[in-house]
Design a binder for these strands. Sequence first.
DNA 1: TATCAACCCTCCAATCATGGGAAGGTCAAA
DNA 2: TTTGACCTTCCCATGATTGGAGGGTTGATA
Lengths: 129, 129
Amino acid sequence: MHIGEAAKASGVNAKLIRHYESIGLIPKASRTASGYRVYTDADVHTLIFVKRARSLGFSMKEIKQLVGLWRNKSRASSEVKILVQKHIMRLDERIRELEAMRDTLKHLARNCRGDSRPDCPILENLAGR
Amino acid sequence: MHIGEAAKASGVNAKLIRHYESIGLIPKASRTASGYRVYTDADVHTLIFVKRARSLGFSMKEIKQLVGLWRNKSRASSEVKILVQKHIMRLDERIRELEAMRDTLKHLARNCRGDSRPDCPILENLAGR
DNA sequence: TATCAACCCTCCAATCATGGGAAGGTCAAA
DNA sequence: TTTGACCTTCCCATGATTGGAGGGTTGATA
């Protein structure tokens, strides 16, 4: 199948499929005589794997590793698990950061009247603490 | 004061100060005869404002608006509050997304033995659900 | 057979906020 | 006068994705 069909089947748009190929995340697709990329069901499967991993917040670098482990039938599941646990820790950290921002802003917003007058504890806080 | 001192005083490094000037976030600094940028305490104050807003997750575009509101003594606090509440909603949304990723991954990791064998529910999930 | 739409190709550029480095000018003290 | 710490502009890189320009291919229809 050509790239458009692979895109439809995988949910990864054509532009992104070419990009993934260019950064070595997926192998170079074979080509027709006229230069069109050709994909198999297995290629689509890989694209679905990549898309799912992206949706779980993994970086391209990590996905490269995950795809490698997936292909490697003699992998140790510990390798996968360690990679995943590191990612979970990063997610936890990021969540805490965002929650801290949100909580601070909620507190400030609660004390801001939000009317036509200029007085605003939010700006006061930003301006100097 | 020159840019290095302003950087030290504000906590925003010199590179970033120039960048903020180039994108119009802060006004163009005046210059000495030899071309060095010159800053006042008020400029440093603005930089601190920007830094604090960044630390609360606002985008540059939002910070531009916030700085404008801060400078505008006849602003309505409602303008500030609306901007902030939109940001809070985006933070909440992002937090929920990250939590969903984390929860999915924790669940998968719990079921992965993490030993030397290749069997791995994490990869199975990524591969096809 | 000419045409036309819907594909496909590559290359370049933009996004967002930040950092790195090159190549060169300025300033103050030793 | 030399040294070293400043400062200047310029270009490039990051990470993941999207956009467009400019052009070739395919297959169906007038």
